[in-house]
């Protein structure tokens, strides 16, 4: 079979994010001194963790045609709840509590979106404000520093600063687990097919016997689940749970990673590994700018260009 021009464009579209990432790596290896140092790579892993975790949930949400802008606030809630209660009930019960509370809120969003058919953007905007408020109330408006929490605080801090074999940051574990789990879910499992079918044509899906409301509840609940762990790992890394600032703008990083990774905003397709690449590209831009002494505002402008470019290149070809 000969390859037509359209096929070539399709292939380019499919791998555009990967190509972009490779270009960044090559450029950096040529122009940025010390780029391949171990410390540098470790930095990437620790910093990218919340974006990837939230991005995994977000990939599924966006593939149903929805959006979840409450993940940053959910991060704060889970982080603060865990920090606040762990000295009283122990570290693992506290984590379970924080995660369960987050998942419950996610399911509430799923109920509004799936059963009542309300706009995901509006519902999660409400959640974003409300949950941020709750997080701040829970910590009484003061940041909870782990070094004031004694033994429990030290244990939780290990979730952020421990290095496997003294080398690889602990964040690699949740990253790998989350990506593998969501990839298997999206590609191999019935639920994953149903999520993407709902995003592609909700009416056909309903008429094929898919419980569309149930799918929505799962997807938003799962997004909150991922965000909760992102919040706990993030607060552990900085050894402080701050209701006001933890996870701020994390939702935007996650959405950007998903979009750059090639998951269409209109839903119907989940590109799990694309999201990972998207997150890496974003991180790469920050890193490149920092290491070359380019001020951060420039990095932001550059990220904006990349996002627009990604959406442009992945748009449906004109008929």
């Amino acid at each position: 079979m000969t390859r037509t021009k359209q096929d070539t464009i399709q292939i380019l579209k499919k791998y555009s994010a990967l190509v972009m990432l490779l270009v960044f790596i090559v450029l950096n290896s040529l122009f940025t001194p010390n780029f391949f140092q171990l410390g540098n790579l470790n930095n990437v892993i620790t910093q990218i963790c919340p974006t990837i975790l939230c991005g995994m949930g977000m990939t599924l949400v966006i593939s149903t045609g929805g959006i979840d802008i409450s993940v940053g606030s959910v991060m704060a809630l889970a982080g603060v709840m865990t920090a606040k209660y762990m000295s009283q009930i122990g570290i693992f019960p506290a984590i379970v509590l924080g995660v369960l509370a987050s998942v419950a809120l996610g399911c509430v969003v799923g109920f509004f979106v799936g059963v009542l058919r309300l706009q995901a953007m509006v519902i999660t905007l409400g959640m974003m404000l409300g949950v941020r408020g709750i997080a701040q109330v829970l910590c009484n408006g003061r940041d909870i520093y782990f070094n004031t929490l004694g033994d429990a605080g030290a244990k939780l801090a290990a979730f952020g600063i421990y290095k496997i074999g003294g080398v690889i940051p602990v964040q690699i574990i949740p990253i790998v687990v989350a990506v593998a789990a969501v990839w298997i879910l999206a590609e191999k499992m019935v639920l994953g097919r149903q999520i993407q079918a709902v995003g592609d044509n909700i009416r056909s899906s309903m008429l094929s016997g898919i419980h569309t409301a149930g799918v929505m509840m799962f997807v938003y609940g799962f997004s909150a689940f991922c965000a909760a762990f992102a919040g706990i790992f993030q607060s552990a890394r900085v050894c402080v749970a701050a209701g006001s600032s933890l996870g701020q703008l994390a939702e935007l990083d996650a959405i950007a990673a998903v979009v750059i990774g090639g998951t269409p905003m209109s839903g119907g397709k989940a590109r799990v590994l694309g999201t990972v690449i998207g997150a890496l590209i974003m991180q790469m831009i920050t890193l490149t700018c920092v290491m070359n002494n380019i001020p951060d505002p420039y990095a932001q402008v550059f990220k904006a260009l990349i996002i627009v470019f990604a959406v442009y290149i992945q748009r449906e070809q004109a008929k």
């Binding site: 079918a197 044509n201 056909s204 899906s205 008429l207 119907g268």
Partner: peptide, 13 residues
């Protein structure tokens, strides 16, 4: 179109 196919999924799916 509206109530039958899931357009971007494969024939198989």
């Amino acid at each position: 179109k509206v109530e039958g196919i899931v357009p971007n999924l494969s024939v198989k799916e």
